[in-house]
Design a protein around this nucleic acid. Structure first.
Lengths: 212, 212, 212, 212
DNA sequence: CATGAATGAGTGTTCATTCAT
DNA sequence: AATGAATGAACACTCATTCAT
């Protein structure tokens, strides 16, 4: 009600998010240095000066984009793994399905590509991202694999490498989307691609059913 | 040493390669826009003006880096696949092993990360790279999978997606190396990582040996 | 004084004219390539970046200087020729007198010298200047000569060449002022010079009054 | 004979003149700053380094071009004026005719345009040119006018201004040729133009033949 | 003598940042 | 809060000049 009553007020509060959304798109497309604040402001429909009311500098904007972009990423996943009842294969399917719904198929996925491109220019931020996102994502995956092994569903593999091996195709899907996919087309239907990946990975993880 | 004796060396033959090597490193690390030609020149041990004796512009240098970087990439692989005698599993191991030796473990691998980062800014070049490298790499992988299926070693999978799914972890290895790996460490020993990947993938591709 | 009070003035309206005036002076003095945009900006009392708020490039500034410099040039003259009542000799005197007051004795006269110096580097602009200024100036002169002949004041001469022959000393006066005049002094008092020219020219045009 | 026997030797001695000829053309067309020594060398068919064997710097080349370009200019004229037998009108015709043959219709004429364009950048050279060329040219013209007055052919006019007034159309002819003439065509046949000019000027100088 | 690879100071242009309004 | 004119440091690119060959 108040929002409707004071549209300008509502606008003010939404500004930072609008600016960050605009910035994310441009950062992903052109990189940090290649993105002009003029363009960010224009895409958000404000003047360049307004940007500085909400962010101290271009770098602060970049960091905010990364940090805001990762906040919602991993909370849900943890709950899912804890609560899941069913085969671990289905859990992995569910986890990756959720990830696709909430992140991969979202502009948030651009954050991954962005961080990859800009890690060299923002090492501290990369460390932060590593600790806040990657490590926690790996934990999630590790718990899934451990659950599968414990249940006798998955055979024993080198956990710490398998985690990344299995997540790599999922990451490449979004990396492609935000890099060559923009000029060369998407190459794969995401659903089919993830299906094939899960099929291969689960078969690869499966215990050898033959005695030979 | 000779360099000190001849500060103004004449090395017309060697210069372009030296400059491109220096440029590749910096482009990979800082991106196209973030790389200063002064730094490229300094790293190659020449002055900025010398760059322009060999490349018309920063963009021309970038394109040369990409194009030269892909020339030697796929020739060997084709021969290997044609000539290989042995199981297809061993062929896949050999192919990826070769790739790692000749590319992945080389500065050439940086080209992949670079192209991913800059595809948005150089769409035409991305299309060229797609046609010259990616398509041909996919062909190689497709022939391996087809050989495995024809020999009864691999089960039938969706070829076109499986190709990319299987190569994705290999790519992520070098992407990591040239992005967060630089600040957060390598996370995996490449040999172990590739071993685990091949183990999982080959098991995933294997025909179900149990009737159950 | 106010300038000191407001070092960062906002003068959006006045800026282009100020910049063009500064640019004209420097272009005339040093030529297009020899003029530094830093100097133009400094002379106009702004920073170099400000120039680019109003002109896309150095070349755009140059073209604007020429084009703006010729706008007011020939309008008045046409009216004068149409409305003049009196001898054609007096008309020619009045026309050249007006030209001197409104152009020759003004910074606008520098445009002529500038166009002469830079025609080789800006051929399209030279054609434009030719069509917009020179052709129209010639028309004006032609009408004067025709009037004189029709009235029996002037003898018949080759109009198209006489036009330029008669205007040449007037042009040389301003060319001198903006070239060697700057280092070697003006050589002539403009009034005396124009007086002598008109005296000679009108005598030259006059019909032979003696039958011999 | 020696020249034919040692063509390379002959070449060496001709080099400075070839370079200066190439330089004159480019300086006239593009101005001093706008001319690249690469282009001068290329037009003369030598390498850029060779230029520096003959001229200490770009500025030295420029000065040589001007100074060599004016050496032969006025010697002949003085002799002509001294020796001429006939009417002063014919002397003026002969003098300007000679000037056209030996200078105006030659690349040397470009020196005038060049000096006009670059006087602002080379004030000392302009002073030199003024003293060496212009003053002496004026002297020549003054002697002609004085001869005409003394002979009763010309009426008394303000000598010092008349000199320049009368020479101005001749100068404008070559200025046009080397500026807008290059893009907009020559506008006049030089012979006709000079004819008209002499006709007007001599008529303008003539004593009034009517008693009125 | 002649060459042309190499240099580095200089300039046009961009863009993050500031600040008067 | 919001604007956008103004700034100036930074960088791509040029070209006169040098010098090893």
């Amino acid at each position: 009600m108040e929002a409707l009553a004071h549209p300008r007020q509502r606008r003010k509060e939404a500004r930072p998010a609008e600016l960050m959304a605009a910035a994310l798109e441009l950062f992903v497309e052109k990189g940090f240095v290649g993105t002009r604040l003029d363009d960010v402001a224009a895409r958000a429909g404000v003047s360049k000066g307004t940007l500085y009311l909400y962010f101290d500098s271009k770098e602060a904007l970049f960091k905010a984009v990364i940090q805001e972009g990762i906040v919602p990423i991993l909370e849900e996943g943890a709950g899912l793994v804890d609560a899941f009842e069913g085969s671990t294969a289905d859990l992995l399917r569910a986890l990756i399905g959720e990830w696709w719904q909430r992140i991969g198929n979202t502009h948030l996925a651009g954050v991954s590509k962005l961080m990859i491109s800009e890690a060299g220019n923002f090492p501290e931020l990369a460390v932060y991202y590593h600790d806040a996102v990657i490590t926690r994502g790996r934990d999630l995956m590790r718990r899934v694999l451990q659950r599968g092994v414990a249940a006798g569903e998955f055979r024993v593999v080198e956990f710490d490498t398998a985690i990344d091996v299995i997540f790599a195709p999922v990451l490449m899907l979004v990396i492609w989307r935000y890099s060559l996919g923009a000029c060369c087309g998407m190459a794969h239907d995401p659903q089919t691609y993830l299906q094939t990946h899960l099929d291969l990975a689960l078969n690869g993880l499966a215990v050898n059913r033959s005695p030979a």
